[in-house]
């Protein structure tokens, strides 16, 4: 059985067990929302519940994204005094448990990202330099698929002929072109998205990237040759399965996939809000560049 089908079966089973008498005998197509013209209706505010933005792959909990280098003692365990475990970088230490990284089982199908050897080394180097390199820290547009699984909601705005995906983080907005619009005229952060329907699934082909975004806080990365194919499939009134196939022959040895559920935000009057983070990072990015730093009121030397 295809894994996507298994996910669908799981959700229908879950629904049946809650509302068995209502849904008995109905297919997924019967219980997912539809537009007036009968097409699937993906409208809504969606969010993931996972740790993919920390690390796409399975990972253990740790006290911070950036840790001090540690060296393990060569002596037999217990023969000497205790040594420290992982310690956050000094810039992060005062955050305590708030700065910790929750464990996660990962969203990569098979849990392996098939890097070319040089790229595997580059990912490790990226991770070691997370604090200065991760574009998220600078409030840069997050790219695709990362925008999907950041810890912020996003809204699908599906009209008769047009679809927008509006993300809360950095106010990023994608237009999903539902007709042939040719290639992107220029490289971009959020890519150039062309969509079509395959049955119940919205399939979005994304190209035209600039190679400057990351996949997560662990330094997983790509080049400007990135090609992402996203699939948004309704599996219940309140769940989509999101799948993205990632292809980049400059960086990976073969295409690979991530998969995760998207959950509808069910709060009444839930609306997407602003997260205008440019203002939050100006002191970090420009404080040292001017004559004066407004944070310290000191003249820069």
């Amino acid at each position: 059985m295809h894994i996507g089908d298994r996910s669908k079966t799981f959700f229908v089973f879950a629904l049946l067990s809650i509302n068995g008498s209502v849904l008995w005998g109905q297919s997924i197509e019967d219980v997912t929302p539809k537009m007036v013209d009968g097409r699937p209706n993906l409208n809504g505010i969606w969010q993931v519940l996972n740790t993919a933005n920390y690390d796409l792959q399975g990972h253990t909990a740790r006290p911070a994204m950036a840790l001090m280098p540690t060296t393990r003692s060569d002596e037999p365990p217990g023969t000497n005094r205790a040594t420290p475990g992982a310690l956050p970088l000094s810039e992060l230490r005062s955050l305590g448990a708030v700065g910790g990284v929750p464990a996660g089982q990962g969203v990569v199908v098979g849990n392996i990202i098939p890097y070319q050897p040089w790229a595997a080394a580059k990912q490790i180097e990226n991770a070691e330099n997370w604090l200065t390199r991760d574009p998220e820290i600078k409030c840069f547009l997050p790219g695709v698929p990362r925008a999907t699984y950041m810890p912020y909601p996003f809204q699908i705005l599906q009209g008769a002929n047009q679809i927008l995906i509006a993300y809360e983080f950095a106010g990023a907005t994608r237009t999903i072109h539902m007709s042939d619009v040719g290639r992107s005229p220029s490289p971009t952060w959020m890519g150039w998205s062309v969509g079509h329907w395959e049955g119940e699934t919205l399939v979005v082909d994304v190209t035209g990237f600039n190679g400057q975004t990351w996949f997560d806080r662990s330094g997983n990365f790509h080049s400007e040759a990135l090609h992402v194919v996203e699939r948004y499939t309704p599996v219940s009134p309140h769940h989509l399965i999101y799948e993205a196939t990632i292809e980049d022959s400059n960086v990976f040895t073969k295409p690979w996939k991530i998969r995760m559920p998207l959950y509808r935000r069910l709060e009444s009057n839930k609306q997407l809000l602003e997260y205008e983070c440019v203002e939050f990072v100006e002191q970090l990015m420009y404080g040292q560049l001017g004559l004066n730093d407004p944070a310290t009121e000191q003249r820069n030397e």
Binding site: N43, L157, G159, Q162, I163, L164, A166, G171, Q271, L272
Partner: peptide
């Protein structure tokens, strides 16, 4: 760009990517 979806009018402005998602009808 103005996009209408059931219950919303969304306006996306090119400069600064200003965006307003306007709920329609009584909220």
């Amino acid at each position: 760009r103005i996009v209408q979806s059931p219950g919303y009018v969304t306006i996306v402005h090119e400069e600064y990517q200003d965006r307003r998602i306007i709920p329609i009808g009584g909220q």
